[in-house]
Design a binder for these strands. Structure first.
Length: 196
DNA sequence: GTACCGATGTTCT
DNA sequence: GAACATCGGTACC
């Protein structure tokens, strides 16, 4: 069953944990690509120095984080890669959950064609935030997309039991006392997690 | 296996 | 002009 508005209205920390194990669905033309979410990170403005919306910084880029939960926040990083976030919580509270890694469940050939890399390992297709966006053709066109009412990108519930562990977030050394927060979550021993 | 490096563009100082 | 929530290739163990 598709996750509804109430699910996305929880705070980013709970949402990051509760998104683990859920099924991300990407519809492109007639293809319906399904992937299990195996790794996430919380970004909680205005207090979090690692968050783009730290100190309530509200710009064209961060605007979507201020929207109601259930929207996609997609931004460009290092000039080459897009990153997909799920906006959490209430309107005017800038919180989001970064999707860091996915486990593909179908359409493996489609994902591989999008990635254009030498590796033949399935896990190399989606074990990082920039990689999974390229594999699923997620670009800034989807920034602000409505995951509750849209059908090109949405998330399905999954009742499967998962063993979640928490860890420090990745590559935010500039965030001072917030860099060591255990705001990253992933499925223990899952091969598709980006970093142990 | 690890280490380094370049690619690339938007945002903010 | 610098920084940046990254990645893939190459070089070397």
């Amino acid at each position: 069953m598709k996750l509804g508005l109430e699910f996305y209205k929880q705070d980013a920390l709970s949402l990051a944990k509760n998104l683990i194990g859920k099924i991300l669905v990407r519809k492109i033309n007639e293809k319906v690509i399904k992937c299990k979410i195996v790794e996430t990170e919380s970004y909680i403005g205005p207090e979090d120095k690692a968050c783009h919306a730290y100190n309530n910084r509200r710009t064209n880029r961060t605007e979507v984080m201020f929207w109601e939960g259930g929207h996609a926040y997609v931004y460009l990083i290092y000039g080459m890669y897009n990153c997909l976030n799920i906006v959490a919580g209430e309107r005017d509270k800038p919180e989001a959950v970064l999707i860091r890694a996915l486990e593909p469940l179908n359409e493996f050939e489609f994902l591989k064609e999008n990635r254009k890399i030498k590796s033949n390992k399935l896990k190399d297709l989606t074990n990082g935030p920039g990689k999974l966006c390229r594999a699923l053709n997620i670009t800034k066109d989807l920034n602000g997309y409505d995951l509750v009412n849209g059908d090109e990108l949405y998330i399905l519930d999954n009742l499967e039991d998962v063993h979640i562990v928490s860890a420090k977030r990745i590559n935010i050394d500039y965030a001072e006392e917030y860099k060591d927060k255990l705001w990253r979550f992933y499925i223990k021993d899952n091969a598709f997690v980006s970093k142990k």
